[in-house]
């Protein structure tokens, strides 16, 4: 019955300090959201990196004057390099067809000849040296004859590779920040509510309420704020992941447990935040 009373009071408090409660809930869910994104990226990093690598690692554009023999020689030479898994040839015509498929209308109609060069697409071994030292690898390619340009899809790739090692650190730092931020918001809201109700609290004490009895609804209120914040985060993450997966199938996997953890984290933040306020102000 006591529990029932506390929960009822907590809900009543919710409707009383509406503005600060709403602000707190959204701040907490925003913080949790940031944290979740980092966590999801970090958890899916390997998958993302593999997917990006699988497409193609390095593309070299061939000079227009290259002969068929030279082309075959060059291909053999590249295949001979360490860590090279496969070299696929894309002819000028294939490149044009691809371009047309990507961009719709045939913009070459106006032009006399196809301006797109032929190219090789080079696939590298998983976890190869070449992959981590991709700049060295590119330099070697550039020194070869009949290669006009080396294009590495390494911008995003390298950032991701770096990120995957940094991301763990980022996640811990962010976790601490988010944790402290949520605590601050929740304990501040609870403090405001306690302050607004100080007369009522004083009266409650005069008619025989123990401190624990007076505190309990505020604890529940903090937990409730965290729970609602967590639920909002959960819904947002769910939608985002859904959209993302539609766009890039297989890139992200987010388990059910992850959502549960978000929810529990929200409640935990709420609990500790209100405990904080209560310890200091009640």
């Amino acid at each position: 019955m006591n529990l029932f009373y506390s929960v009822r009071e907590a809900f009543a408090g919710f409707t009383k300090a509406r503005v600060s409660t709403v602000i707190t809930i959204f701040t907490v869910s925003f913080f949790l959201f940031l944290l979740s994104i980092v966590a999801i990226l970090s958890l899916n990093m390997n998958r993302v990196v593999t997917m990006l690598n699988a497409n193609h690692d390095v593309q070299v554009f061939l000079s227009n004057t290259i002969s068929a023999v030279e082309k075959d020689e060059l291909r053999a030479e590249i295949l001979d390099m360490d860590d090279v898994l496969a070299v696929d040839y894309i002819s000028k015509d294939q490149a044009a067809a691809e371009f047309q498929r990507e961009f719709g209308d045939d913009i070459f109609e106006a032009l006399e000849e196809n301006p797109l060069p032929a190219s090789f697409i080079i696939k590298l071994n998983e976890n190869s040296d070449a992959k981590t030292n991709i700049n060295d690898f590119a330099q070697k390619l550039e020194q070869m004859p009949n290669i006009d340009e080396v294009v590495m899809h390494q911008g995003a790739l390298q950032i991701l590779v770096k990120f995957s090692s940094v991301s763990r650190v980022v996640m811990y730092v962010l976790f601490v920040l988010v944790f402290l931020g949520s605590l601050f918001m929740i304990s501040n809201t609870i403090r405001l509510i306690i302050f607004a109700r100080r007369k009522i609290i004083a009266t409650m004490k005069l008619v025989g309420a123990t401190d624990a009895f007076i505190r309990r609804p505020f604890l529940f209120e903090g937990i409730l704020q965290g729970l609602v914040g967590g639920s909002i985060t959960m819904a947002a993450i769910y939608l985002l992941v859904k959209i993302f997966v539609l766009q890039w199938p297989g890139l992200l996997v987010v388990s059910k447990e992850f959502y549960l953890i978000v929810l529990l984290a929200g409640m935990l933040f709420g609990f500790i935040g209100s405990l904080f306020a209560i310890r200091r102000f009640l």
């Binding site: 019955m1 009543a12 009522i200």
Partner: peptide, 20 residues
Amino acid sequence: KLLNDRDVFRNISFVLEVVG
């Protein structure tokens, strides 16, 4: 010293809730 955030019934029931 009534609790002005709740109705008459809850004002009185409060002291009973307190003792469980």
